[in-house]
Write a protein that binds this DNA or RNA. Structure first.
Lengths: 207, 207
DNA sequence: AGATACACGTGGTCTGACCACTTTCTTTGA
DNA sequence: TCAAAGAAAGTGGTCAGACCACGTGTATCT
């Protein structure tokens, strides 16, 4: 494979062809792609060029290569985009001011989604867990974010949570009553009351 | 450089050290980093390993290498990465669903924030612009996101917009009446009606 | 049947060769 | 002396090859 005609570097072409292969062969998370040596033959490129392409995709979190085993597709939803973007966005000084507000907005979105999508059995489990367990605020909203059934929203929340925690804001002591009331409102299917309970929870948590 | 003690692959270590170098040396867009051969010496690694790290960073859009010249820092632009990733993500229906849903949730958050924070003069300007201009859906919500006065939320929306746009969903023809109604509801300070209008706008947009 | 050893396949890293291009330096000619 | 041309050096681009570390599968031994 040479480059005299086209402008693209070999590794870029390989990335493109891997993408097509994934699509054509219907490869899903956990599936194995051909070995480096086989790809080298198939794509008429040097093994080093194949590796360059694979390393690039690996850094993006789209694949995972394990010595002795091979190279596997990862769940594309776990890609590193959100992580990478947060690196740049959160370096922006202005962003820090907005972290708290945005975290709260996302949490409320998660509550709305959880209310809309979760069955009563899931909410009953949450209620039981809330009563029976010692938990942190983060533990609680991790469950809510999970119940929102939107992986992207879940990851955004996680990034915001981690960053919020890195700001050194003291974690509030958990007053269980607020979380239990919130859960009750969720169970009752009353989203407005749920959001009101959230505000009350946060007003308290802030002091 | 060998790997017998640590778990990280060499290229990952090189990526990390490049990151430190960029930061320590205060390198900015356009600045040149040391040659592959020099990095190879400095970091005590093979040139191939250096190249693997560089290719990975290049695919992320963080650097640009030009034959005969060298490797240069680039301004990070999210849309390049989003576009690349979306070609993979497109293959995952759940990921597509998450993107669409999250964009809508963020837009509603922007509406809520715009309603809470914007003065009547700003909203009046929006009303006037909506009447007087030809605009796209993205144009409209760019303004809304701006009026939310939360830079982080704004950036999140922009990235989601790029993501959404690379899904290949046909941009709907703008039916101005819906945007004008939405603006009226904002002006009236009725957030529930505003959100209802948003839902109506999106329901139509989906056909 | 279970444990062990061996062979093979896969990835991991490095070296080296050579090419294409760019930049810098040196030589030549006006 | 200055400008242009050519050569040398530097940079990235690609490939081949060597050899090691690990994982998996098969064969053999207890």
């Amino acid at each position: 494979m040479n480059q005299s005609e086209g402008k693209s570097k070999v590794y870029i072409e390989i990335v493109k062809q891997l993408r097509v292969m994934i699509e054509t062969d219907g490869l899903k998370a956990g599936d194995k792609i051909p070995s480096e040596r086989e790809l080298s033959e198939r794509l008429d490129a040097g093994r080093s060029s194949v590796r360059e392409a694979l390393r690039a995709l690996e850094l993006l979190g789209l694949i995972e290569t394990r010595r002795g085993e091979g190279t596997f597709i990862r769940d594309f939803r776990e890609n590193q985009l959100v992580q990478l973007l947060s690196t740049f966005i959160l370096q922006d000084k202005r962003a820090k001011r907005d972290v708290v507000e945005t975290k709260y907005l996302i949490e409320m979105d998660c509550l709305r989604q959880a209310a809309a999508k979760s069955g009563d059995d899931k909410l009953a489990q949450l209620k039981q867990w809330t009563s029976a367990s010692e938990f942190s605020d983060d533990d609680f909203f991790l469950k809510i974010a999970d119940m929102a059934d939107n992986h992207l929203l879940f990851r955004i929340w996680k990034i915001l949570k981690d960053y919020y925690n890195s700001l050194g804001i003291n974690p509030p002591a958990v007053n269980k009553a607020y979380y239990e009331k919130l859960t009750d409102d969720l169970l009752a299917g009353d989203i407005d009351r749920t959001l009101l309970s959230y505000w009350q929870l946060r007003d308290l948590s802030k002091e």
